[in-house]
């Protein structure tokens, strides 16, 4: 009946947020969500397993904090860019996570954090090529990605 309960629920929520809560829109939203998740099921995507979903808020908090921090750092670099104070560079990081959803989440996290950009993932070598705006401390970047994000993601999508 409902192949993707989370997807269905989020679609209903989104419908109600966009249209305002009325009983009529609730019914319409449920209808749309159920049919949309059937359509999704016929695409047969890989179903993500959330092993420790309660760690998601922790990840969210960490990412939000890092985004604030790197926003300030990147704004400073741009405003001082006449003086060439930063040291941009490429960085190849081997990844241990295999779950596609987890990799996608990691890509979103790294891209929405200003100062680091996800360029390409090589699924043969399981490495990702990043571009970093300020590569002063390469070991620190590797450490952040491996220990701060990847470990947590591996726990969530076990």
């Amino acid at each position: 009946m409902l192949p993707y309960p989370l997807l269905t629920l989020s679609l209903i929520l989104m419908w109600l947020l966009l249209n305002g809560f009325t009983p009529g829109h609730l019914v319409l939203g449920i209808l749309v969500a159920v049919f949309a998740s059937w359509a999704m099921a016929s695409l047969r995507p890989e179903k993500p397993k959330l092993a420790k979903w309660y760690l998601l808020p922790k990840l969210f908090g960490i990412v939000l904090y890092d985004i604030v921090k790197s926003n300030i750092a990147v704004a400073r670099i741009i405003l001082k860019s006449g003086r060439r104070s930063h040291n941009p560079g490429f960085l190849t990081v081997p990844l241990d996570i295999e779950n596609h959803t987890a990799i996608a989440v990691l890509a979103v996290v790294l891209t929405s954090t200003p100062g680091s950009a996800w360029l390409e993932y090589d699924s043969n070598d399981r490495t990702v090529l990043l571009h970093v705006l300020d590569l002063d401390n390469e070991a620190e970047w590797r450490d952040t990605i491996k220990n701060r994000y990847e470990k947590l993601l591996m726990e969530i999508f076990a």
Binding site: I67, V74, I78, S112, T113, P114, G115, A117, H131, L133
Partner: peptide, 11 residues
Amino acid sequence: RIHAPTLGTSW
């Protein structure tokens, strides 16, 4: 340059 617009899309 691709790093700059992410300021606008994050905070």
